[in-house]
Design a protein around this nucleic acid. Structure first.
Length: 352
DNA sequence: ATAATTTGACCTCC
DNA sequence: GGAGGTCAAATTAT
């Protein structure tokens, strides 16, 4: 069967299954969190299916790169000390910006845009971004663009991203996200953020369309990969939890580099509270890859991912796979399952 | 008029 | 001191 059709079928089937799960969670005993998560996954599946239809789904092999390097404790507020201390506030706040740079969760994805989109590889990820800088990077053929959440001032959302075109393949842009969205558009992207193009980016996109003499193309289209690799690295000293990936509904080829996201995400979603310590053991490996399809990644996106390295990988990822019929299970079938059977999996539905 | 982008200056980190 | 990241005034677009 054609790979595009396979992707399409997989996403539609997954959407169907997720809808069934959602139906089972309509009772009052299920949390809104669960329902929200299922809804987002359903939307994600259909987004991908539609994109496959729109784009012809030139399938590429995405890479997911996840790393947890530091503790996440300090990126929630840019500088609470500014209010409480006697330090020069302005100076302190500025310093915290750079401190935040190191401690914010970070992950990178490589997005391959369809030729002719005119978007110059700047993918829509469901959020509104404002460009605040551009810099020539040493050794890079293309400048790096710096974007921050449009709601940074209005809602204090600290999410930023960097967009840089790949030297090797200019059709690929590497998008590095830092920090998670705390603005409303993130908490409810399905209703706030357009799944296609944000206002800012659409304007830019349409302008480019004019430039490209291609006014008919009004949908942002990206190729979707049928699989991806997850890389974990730099896991030496942290408790690792999967990040709250705002997995772009239209991304296909992705390399995620996440730092500290697991713990923060889990805590935020009240998931880790029910996890045994075995799920957050220290790590030692430098780099590990394993194949995961984009849909699988979506399954542990949205703040319910799993972070790993070598042995930890097995401990963490295996848990949900053994409890649910999730595609994640298929994705990680090669991973040995070894986790606490008494583990309170209250929130395992998140991994479904 | 308002909002977004550009771009040079500035800051921190290594 | 250089590189990467951010700020903010000026410019441009809507």
């Amino acid at each position: 069967m054609d790979r595009e059709l396979m992707v399409l079928e997989k996403e539609l089937t997954q959407g169907k299954e997720l809808a069934k799960q959602l139906r089972n969670h309509l009772n009052p005993s299920s949390s809104n969190q669960t329902r929200d998560y299922l809804i987002q996954k359903i939307l994600g599946s259909y987004e991908k299916a539609l994109s496959v239809l729109n784009c012809g789904a030139s399938v590429v092999e995405p890479k997911i790169n996840i790393s947890m390097l530091e503790t996440p404790s300090s990126f929630a507020n840019i500088s609470p000390r500014c209010e409480a201390s006697n330090l020069d506030c302005e100076d302190q706040c500025h310093r915290d910006v750079f401190k935040k740079r190191k401690t914010m969760p970070r992950w990178t994805e490589q997005v391959k845009a369809c030729a002719g989109t005119g978007l110059e590889g700047h993918p829509d990820d469901g959020y509104c971004w404002r460009k605040y800088g551009q810099k020539d990077i040493l050794g890079a053929n293309f400048p790096r663009g710096y974007y921050r959440c449009t709601h940074r001032h209005a809602q204090g959302c600290l999410a930023t991203k960097q967009v840089q075109r790949s030297d090797g393949d200019p059709s690929i842009v590497e998008v590095t996200y830092r920090g998670r969205h705390t603005c409303n558009q993130n908490s409810n992207p399905a209703t706030v953020a357009s799944p296609s193009v944000s206002k800012v980016e659409k304007n830019h996109y349409l302008r480019k369309q004019e430039h490209d003499q291609n006014p008919k193309q009004e949908e942002v289209m990206f190729k979707f990969g049928a699989g991806c690799k997850v890389k974990t690295e730099g896991l030496d000293n942290s408790e690792n939890i999967f990040p709250s990936f705002p997995f772009p509904p239209t991304s296909i080829e992705a390399e995620y580099v996440a730092e500290n996201i697991f713990q923060e995400a889990m805590l935020e979603n009240n998931i880790m509270g029910s996890f045994s310590q075995a799920f957050i053991s220290p790590t030692t490996s430098e780099s590990n890859y394993f194949p995961v399809s984009p849909s699988h990644m979506n399954n542990f996106g949205l703040g319910h991912g799993v972070q790993t390295s070598d042995s930890d990988l097995t401990e963490i990822i295996s848990a949900p796979t053994s409890v649910t019929n999730s595609p994640i299970g298929e994705a990680f079938d090669f991973i040995k399952v070894d986790f606490d059977p008494n583990f309170p999996f209250d929130n395992l539905e998140f991994f479904a």
